[in-house]
């Protein structure tokens, strides 16, 4: 049975594309058939993060408008053979995507894939609404920072109002992926804690991805952190999140600053 998941956030730059690529690659590595779909018409980047930018011939809009077959537009990853990409158009107008076109392409993708991850554009405009429209579930990517949390709250409201599932009176499952989390700053009271964000947004947690320099290195070379051999904390977090998506029960460890100095330990209660 296939599952369509929208990766969304409202705010830009919080890690939607990185998360789509990393989770998609991690899911595909378990043998599941995965297609990651870029909905950011005019500002596509998923191809770049996956290192497939020179292999895009046909895109989502070509398929939605019937100018190309789905099989022609799908790009198979060279490292993980069950991972595929459907790129967004870089040149076309974003209004070229219609409800009907998207519905048909998603329907076709459901025939051949176990997982369809839709990388939403930032904002709450048409592109973001189309990306969430036909989703079964949502991953809300949030940074522990006020503007990101506010925008996520807005997106959660839209998921409950504007998706097909919501309109049919069905429940759309939402899970929070907290990215760029800095345990040290959070423990010093300089950054919203995991509990703060969960309390404010009231959405169950899919995973906590710590701030990790490996992520930039991975995108520099077009290899998602889950397939570039990284053993760092972010790669581990994405792998665990992917396994939770599949249904495994893996406890979520809230990262803690382990190397506390004696001085910090003495004053740690102040920040709690």
């Amino acid at each position: 049975m296939s599952k369509v998941i929208v990766v969304t956030s409202g705010k830009g730059g919080v890690g939607k594309t990185t998360s789509t690529a990393s989770l998609g690659a991690a899911l595909a590595q378990t043998g599941q058939k995965v297609c990651v779909v870029d909905f950011d018409v005019g500002l596509r980047n998923l191809d770049l993060v996956l290192g497939a930018e020179r292999r895009v011939v046909y895109d989502f809009i070509n398929v939605a408008q019937g100018d190309a077959r789905l099989a022609q537009a799908l790009i198979r990853d060279k490292r993980v053979e069950t991972l595929h990409l459907l790129a967004a158009s870089q040149t076309r107008d974003k209004d070229a995507l219609t409800d009907e076109g998207v519905e048909r392409v998603i329907g076709d993708l459901r025939q051949s894939f176990d997982w369809i991850l839709c990388d939403s554009p930032a904002g709450i405009e048409r592109g973001a609404l189309l990306a969430m429209r036909f989703a079964d579930e949502a991953i809300v990517v949030t940074n522990p920072e006020i503007s990101s949390v506010r925008d996520s709250d807005r997106i959660i409201g839209l998921l409950d109002a504007k998706t097909r599932r919501a309109e049919a009176g069905e429940k759309i499952e939402k899970r929070l992926l907290l990215t760029r989390f800095d345990a040290a700053r959070s423990s010093r009271g300089e950054m919203l804690s995991v509990a703060d964000v969960l309390d404010i947004l009231s959405v169950p947690l899919l995973g906590i991805v710590p701030e990790d320099q490996e992520i930039l290195r991975a995108s520099n070379v077009g290899a998602p952190i889950t397939i570039n051999g990284s053993a760092g904390p972010a790669a581990r977090a994405y792998r665990d999140a992917a396994r939770r998506l599949i249904g495994e029960t893996i406890p979520i460890a809230v990262p803690d600053e382990k190397k506390k100095t004696l001085f910090n330990r003495l004053f740690s209660r102040r920040a709690a």
């Binding site: 506010r150 807005r154 010093r188 404010i200």
Partner: peptide
């Protein structure tokens, strides 16, 4: 260090107040 209690509690409080209003205004409108 002794003076700074962290700015996260301020962020949390501001968000809670803001969102309690915004959810009414924009919620499932």
């Amino acid at each position: 260090f002794l003076k700074a209690r962290g700015t996260a509690p301020v962020a949390r409080e501001r968000l809670q107040i803001l969102l309690s209003h915004e959810r009414i205004a924009v919620g499932p409108r």
